[in-house]
Each structure stands twice: as C-alpha cells, then as structure tokens.
C-alpha cells in the first residue's frame, strides 16, 4: 500500500503541489493523469522519494524520503520521463546496473529475461546511444523490471513507478508495455504510472488519479473519473466520452472534441 498524505511542494516560491493525498494499492495499476505542467511528474518524484516535500508518504511501513534511498531501492523501480546516460554503456550492461540495485542481484538470469520481456533481447550488445527513442524507452523499462523482478518479495509487494512509459512507443508496443504492467499488478505488485493516453488509461488502470494545477481533480475507477464534464473542464476543450458496451470501459475520440468556447 502506497499512501501519500497532504503533500505540498513549492519550488522557488511557486506552488507545484497543494495538499495532495492519494492511495495506491498493490495488485492494481494506478494511473496519474492530467494536463501538461499539472504536476504529475513532480508528484511521482515525491512518491518515489526523489524530492522531499511537506506531508507524508509511506510505502507499507517504509517512510519514503530521499534519505531512505537504499531501503527503497529493494522495493521499487522508477522509470523517469526521460533518461540520458553518460558514457557508452551497452544495453545489457545498463540493464545489469538496474539488476544490481535490487534484491535479486545474485540471480544472473534476470537481466536477459527482463530484456526479452520488453522484446529487445536481440539488442543486448548494442550501444544504448545507438538505439531509437522507443527502443531506449523499453531498455529503461527492462532496467527497472530487472531491479524489482519479482512482483512480491520478502518485504511485501514491490512497486513500479513509471512516468509516461509509452510516450514514444508504437501502438503495438504501447499495448505490450501496458500488458507488462498489468501482469506485474496481477501477480501482486504495485504499479503507479503517469499517463497521457486516456484510452489506454481507461483500458488498463484500476484506479485513476486526475491532477489539475497541482491539486487532485478526481480519483476513482476509470469510468468514474474520466467523464465528459470533468475532462472538458480539466483539459480546457470540449471532450465527449463514450462507453464500450462491454463493462464500463470509457473511450475517447479526438474527432469528437470541439474547440472550447467560453
């Protein structure tokens, strides 16, 4: 269980997050959505202990804080929105560094399996810098998976924190990465993902948290949060949400959006 209470963050006098509280359960995918600049990445940074903020974040019984880096590394992996790497590491070397930071550092088969999981086993010995943007993003995901390979460890559920994990992927890879996340959650792990694609969010998320200008604008099941009214207000353009007949999966066609008037 990830629990954040009354998170408030200001950088250089500018309020970035105001009194944000949220919970995320292991066994579920929790999606954080919201417009550009609304504070999703900043919130994820607080939830992973990268940034210290007022308020309190707990991962089970662990206090999440920059000082807890070592204890946290055994429990959760973090995929940042963008990663640049100094020095010419090969793909497999890079995945091994993630693997070495986790609790299964002695199981030598994990890096190769993590790379195979994202469908890039054949690139193991290429230089990371020579890969395409989408391939780099998947290698980073493999690095994160290698760090917390088992969804449930001795200390409880392990967690994936993913900041826009599908932002540079083609549609096939988007689906396959979201399935990796879903499998991880179904096996008992926790997943928190910042998402821009509302359709994928509706398809895969169990819990959606919507952020607007540093505040929570809604939280709940996808069909509860992703409503025409709320989306239109938060994103500042008229959006119409439809629902697939099966289940409660909402979907959204950009074609159905009109310029916001008034």
């Amino acid at each position: 269980m990830l629990h954040a209470e009354a998170i408030t963050l200001a950088i250089g006098g500018k309020a970035i997050l105001r009194d944000v509280s949220l919970s995320a359960r292991a066994g579920e995918i929790t999606a954080i959505v919201g417009p550009n600049g609304s504070g999703k990445t900043s919130l994820l940074r607080v939830l992973t202990g990268e940034t210290a903020a007022a308020g309190r974040v707990r991962l089970d019984r662990l206090d999440v804080h920059p000082r807890a880096a070592t204890a946290l590394a055994a429990r959760r992996g973090v995929l940042p929105q963008a990663t640049r790497i100094a020095f010419p590491f090969t793909v497999i070397e890079l995945v091994r560094i993630g693997h070495g930071a986790g609790q299964h550092a002695t199981r030598a088969d994990i890096p190769d399996r993590a790379l195979a999981r994202v469908g890039l086993g054949h690139l193991a010995n290429r230089f990371y810098q020579d890969l395409s943007g989408g391939e780099q993003q998947r290698v980073q995901l493999a690095r994160v998976l290698a760090q917390v390979w088992e969804p449930v460890g001795p200390g409880g559920a392990n967690w994936l924190f993913l900041d826009e994990p599908v932002s540079s992927l083609d549609i096939g890879q988007q689906l396959s990465v979201m399935r990796i996340a879903r499998n991880y959650a179904q096996a008992g792990g926790g997943v928190v993902a910042v998402m821009h694609d509302l359709n994928l969010t509706a398809m895969f998320a169990d819990h959606v948290v919507m952020v607007q200008q540093g505040e929570i604008a809604g939280a709940g099941k996808p069909h509860e949060v992703l409503t025409s009214g709320r989306l239109s207000a938060v994103y500042g353009c008229a959006l119409r949400v439809s629902t697939l007949p099966l289940g409660h999966v909402p979907y959204l066609l950009p074609q159905a959006a009109q310029e916001f008037v008034g």
């Binding site: 940074r45 992973t48 202990g49 990268e50 920059p66 880096a69 070592t70 204890a71 946290l72 590394a73 055994a74 959760r76 992996g77 973090v78 940042p80 990663t83 640049r84 790497i85 100094a86 020095f87 590491f89 560094i97 993630g98 070495g100 930071a101 760090q147």
Partner: peptide, 21 residues
C-alpha cells in the same frame, strides 16, 4: 564503482538505484 555507475544515469536515477548520492 557502483556509485559512479549510478551517477552515469543522472542523480535522480542514481537515487532510485539506492545509491547514497
């Protein structure tokens, strides 16, 4: 060794890898 490997990813990721940056 491990710390500098982590820093090659930038300070944030080094922290996520459990390195006392």
């Amino acid at each position: 060794g491990r710390g500098l490997n982590g820093l090659a990813f930038g300070e944030a990721t080094a922290l996520h890898l459990g390195i006392p940056v």
